[in-house]
């Protein structure tokens, strides 16, 4: 950084080798990219905020959705696993800065070692995110969707804990078979049939007096509204339409489908960034081992990929806040 921006003579200004803002071309372009990418993520998160304030009185609560921790099946532990993921990503950011710093000192093996740790951290994070997606897609209790697209969940009348459809729905033998293109005039296949029909759920509900329905509408204290036994049965009979288990882009057993849409889209886009980051890190890692940067005389490439990696961490800090905390 010895050549400051100088205007003393035309030769030094326009003669080449000058660095505007005392930063190299590559780093300046990386900042340019990160700024625009940051604006993309801001657009997505602001759109999430739009949807959330639009449905302020019926937005699902993240604490009830993301309660799972691997190897601790059946326990409700909100925040724990996602806090672990956040820590893994911050930690891999630290090993990345250490790699950049080792690059400044031209220590090839140290750079390679820290790059390897960064790659491992990124891989653990992407794996965790895949697991988180898996549990969200599978769901845990199941719910009923109404004609208007709202979600009715089932809770115990005393503890107000959710009750799984499996625990009370009556399973009948059904003649209804799955539509397939090969055996009819239907133009398209249908998805797998749900485990229970709405009638079986209504029958099960009538037979178990301890079950109430919880709607997605939040009351003044921010809790979901629980209907009386009478209202529960009436609502289910009048409006119940189909069974929902887990979440996808169309329906979501925890409430608004938009919540699932934004979750999949934003964490997916972020996860794709982490994945690309891991791939780029691997390429740089091999370049370090092969001595490419040793020959080049500087490790600026590690610095540039480091900027990208920290940016991914930076975005996660915001995703963490807006999806899990707020």
């Amino acid at each position: 950084m010895s050549s400051a921006v100088s205007v003393s003579s035309k030769e030094t200004t326009w003669g080449g080798g000058n660095k505007p803002l005392r930063t190299s071309y590559g780093k300046a372009m990386m900042w340019f990219f990160l700024l625009s990418d940051g604006l993309s993520f801001s657009g997505f998160l602001a759109a999430y905020g739009f949807a959330r304030f639009r449905f302020l009185d019926s937005w699902p609560k993240a604490d009830e959705v993301f309660t799972h921790v691997p190897f601790l099946h059946g326990q409700e532990l909100p925040m724990i696993y996602v806090a672990f993921m956040t820590f893994v990503l911050i930690m891999s950011s630290v090993t990345m800065v250490l790699a950049v710093d080792a690059g400044h000192q031209m220590k090839q093996s140290k750079v390679a070692f820290y790059m390897l740790l960064t790659i491992l951290g990124g891989a653990v994070f992407v794996g965790s995110q895949a697991w988180e997606w898996g549990t969200f897609i599978n769901g845990d209790y199941g719910a009923v969707k109404t004609k208007g697209g709202n979600i009715l969940q089932f809770v115990d009348s005393h503890s107000h804990h959710r009750i799984a459809l499996d625990d009370f729905a009556h399973k009948h033998h059904s003649d209804r078979i799955q539509h397939e293109e090969t055996n009819g005039l239907w133009f398209y296949d249908e998805g797998a049939l749900p485990i229970y029909s709405i009638e079986e759920v209504i029958e099960g509900m009538e037979a178990s007096p301890n079950i109430l329905i919880r709607t997605q509408i939040l009351d003044e204290t921010g809790e979901k509204t629980i209907l009386s036994r009478e209202e529960s049965l009436n609502t289910l009979r009048a409006n119940g339409k189909s069974i929902v288990t887990g979440a996808n882009l169309i329906e979501n057993e925890y409430g608004m489908p938009l919540f699932a849409d934004f979750f999949f889209f934003i964490t997916g886009f972020h996860g794709f960034h982490v994945f690309s980051g891991v791939v780029i890190n691997i390429i740089i890692f091999f370049n370090v081992i092969l001595g490419t940067y040793e020959k080049r005389g500087h490790y600026e490439m590690v610095e540039k990929v480091g900027l990208y990696w920290h940016f991914v961490d930076l975005v996660w800090v915001f995703v963490f806040t807006f999806f899990y905390l707020v």
């Binding site: 803002l21 005392r22 930063t23 300046a28 900042w31 950011s93 630290v94 990345m96 800065v97 950049v100 480091g306 900027l307 920290h310 940016f311 961490d313 930076l314 800090v317 915001f318 963490f320 806040t321």
Partner: peptide, 22 residues
């Protein structure tokens, strides 16, 4: 969150060591 974003940008991304203009 903004506090965390500040320290990630300023110290991990070395914004603190860049020129004021950048």
């Amino acid at each position: 969150t903004i506090v965390k974003a500040y320290y990630i940008t300023w110290d991990f991304m070395h914004m603190r060591d860049e020129t004021k203009t950048l």
